[in-house]
Computed example of a mutant assay.
Amino acid sequence: MISLCLTSGAISAALVIQSFTLAWMHSVEKVRWEEDWRIESRQLQIVEARIKGSGAGMEPPEGAVLLDGAWHYRPAVAPMERLILAHSPYTTGYELCFQGDCQPLTHFLPGIEETGTIILAPCPGASG
């Protein structure tokens, strides 16, 4: 069974999913970013990314294709053991999307600290 573990301090959750989209709003440009991820060989592999605009520090990379109002591209990022995300009340939080629904990461980790980090990683024993 493939699961994604979310952790922030002592609070954690496990979701039985093999793929997901991580989405957020750029803190300055107020433009949505989305990244599609999947769990493969106990690591996280990015599949595709989308930026719905451009601006300060967020120019689409070479080879990106504009489709339906967003720049689509595949980041040249090696598989990762985990993603470490900053959590702050001063920016719009990250969203986790799967099975056609998006929810703030805080939905899955109720009661987390106002500031800190959220870690996404394949759960121990997850295969894929």
Rank of each mutant, 00 (worst) to 15 (best):
S12C: 10
A13D: 07
A13T: 06
A14Q: 15
A14Y: 04
A14F: 05
L15E: 05
L15V: 10
L15K: 08
L15Y: 10
V16S: 09
V16M: 03
V16A: 11
I17P: 03
I17K: 04
I17G: 02
Q18W: 04
Q18E: 11
Q18D: 13
S19Q: 15
S19M: 06
F20Q: 03
F20T: 02
L22V: 04
L22T: 03
L22R: 05
L22E: 04
L22C: 04
A23W: 02
W24N: 11
W24F: 11
M25V: 12
M25W: 04
M25C: 12
M25G: 02
M25S: 11
M25T: 14
H26R: 09
H26P: 08
H26C: 09
S27V: 08
S27F: 10
S27P: 11
S27R: 12
S27K: 11
S27H: 10
V28R: 05
K30H: 14
V31P: 01
V31N: 00
V31W: 00
V31A: 05
V31H: 01
R32P: 09
W33I: 08
W33R: 07
E34Q: 15
E34P: 07
E34H: 06
E35N: 09
D36Y: 03
D36E: 14
W37Y: 15
W37R: 05
W37E: 00
W37T: 01
W37V: 02
R38L: 11
R38F: 06
R38T: 03
I39W: 10
E40K: 06
E40I: 02
S41P: 00
S41R: 11
S41I: 00
R42T: 09
Q43V: 08
L44P: 06
L44D: 02
Q45I: 12
I46Y: 00
I46E: 02
I46R: 13
V47Q: 13
V47W: 01
E48F: 01
E48G: 05
A49I: 03
A49Q: 02
A49E: 03
R50P: 01
R50C: 03
I51E: 00
I51H: 00
K52V: 00
K52H: 14
K52S: 13
G53S: 12
G53K: 12
G53C: 13
G53Y: 10
G55F: 07
G55P: 06
A56K: 08
A56D: 00
A56R: 10
